[in-house]
């Protein structure tokens, strides 16, 4: 009985949710009275593993194999399946990354379990209770997992890496028995589509537009607000997918991460993939007709109303304030 935390790194670079997940593991270890171990898979991962071993943990596993040099769903699943069968944890925690989304459900299936994904909180209430969001963040729900091991992936930002306790852990190398012929994905090197001409991370004020704008021909409504504020214009993903604004103006997990003084979200619902890109803004303003839109959960100021009335009124008010 233990907790196993799976860490993620790429070419020696940590995925930052790794540390948040490790902090969650430590806290759940205390809450559930279980020892906590961590594991990291790849080729040449002793370095990162020894770094992880400076945290308060029982043990860190360096899951080492030439075939793990590049991530594949088949390779990672097989490697972690073997480690889990050996170490028999009762809870396996992952950072909720794109990579984890790709292999952890497959791994859980090997144990006739499901992955409880994108978890935002956890507690011991006569056993483990995991909290996750439903309906794109409009509702939350408590999940009581059954069976062992329980697999859960944790949302970015839900736990704090700065609460990680330091210590010293034993390190052990684990070499899984992988077979090249059973790894069916042949990955090519990652690439970026285009050079980014716009760096939104330097912007002081951002006006960001979402699907509430309805049509491309309405974009001038928010353009005018941006002009009145001297702000950069940004958008949620569907706006860029539709080509109403260029891709390089997309904010979120698959776009840019921004931290302006003011972020004004206009007609954006506040899906987690958007929030992770702008939660760091100093002051967040949301304009949305739905009082239950999740964007209001992170907003400092909100106007509930129709953006087609509110935004022009705001432009007026700004002009007046400038005098």
């Amino acid at each position: 009985m233990s907790i196993l935390v799976i860490l993620e790194q790429h070419n020696g670079q940590w995925h930052r949710i790794s540390w948040e997940t490790l902090a969650a593991g430590q806290q759940l270890g205390v809450a559930l009275g279980l020892p906590v171990e961590a594991a990291i898979a790849g080729k040449g991962v002793e370095g990162p593993a020894s770094e992880a071993a400076t945290r308060k943990l029982e043990k860190v596993w360096a899951v080492e194999h030439d075939l793990l040099e590049q991530y594949t769903a088949d390779g990672h699943t097989a490697a972690f399946e073997e480690l889990i069968r050996k170490t028999q944890p009762s809870l396996v925690l992952f950072p909720h990354t794109y990579q984890v989304r790709d292999f952890a459900p497959k791994l859980a299936t090997r144990f006739s379990q499901v992955l409880v994904s994108d978890v935002i909180a956890a507690r011991n209430d006569n056993g483990l209770v995991l909290v996750r969001q439903f309906f794109q963040g409009k509702l939350s729900g408590d999940i009581r997992p059954g069976g062992s091991p329980c697999f859960a992936s944790l949302q970015a930002g839900a736990w704090r890496a700065d609460q990680l306790e330091t210590g010293s852990a034993a390190m052990e190398t684990f070499v899984p028995t992988l077979d090249a012929s059973r790894i069916r994905q042949k990955p090519e090197p990652p690439f970026r589509e285009t050079a980014r001409a716009v760096d939104l991370s330097a912007a002081g004020i951002i006006v960001s537009v979402g699907r509430g704008i309805k049509e491309e021909s309405n974009i001038p409504v928010v353009r005018e607000l941006a002009a009145a504020l001297g702000a950069e214009l940004a958008a949620s993903r569907p706006i860029c997918d539709a080509g109403w604004l260029p891709m390089e103006r997309q904010v979120g997990s698959s776009g840019q991460t921004v931290a302006p003084k003011i972020y004004i979200a206009v007609g954006i619902s506040g899906a987690i993939q958007h929030l992770v890109g702008m939660k760091g803004a100093k002051t967040i303003v949301a304009i949305n007709k739905d009082p239950n839109a999740p964007i209001f959960e992170v907003a400092d100021y909100g106007i509930v109303g129709d953006l087609f009335e509110v935004v022009p009124a705001l432009v007026e008010a700004l002009k007046k304030a400038k005098g």
Partner: peptide, 9 residues
């Protein structure tokens, strides 16, 4: 195996 116990705002 994983049951929703409660759903809320």
């Amino acid at each position: 195996a994983a049951k929703i116990e409660k759903i809320y705002a």
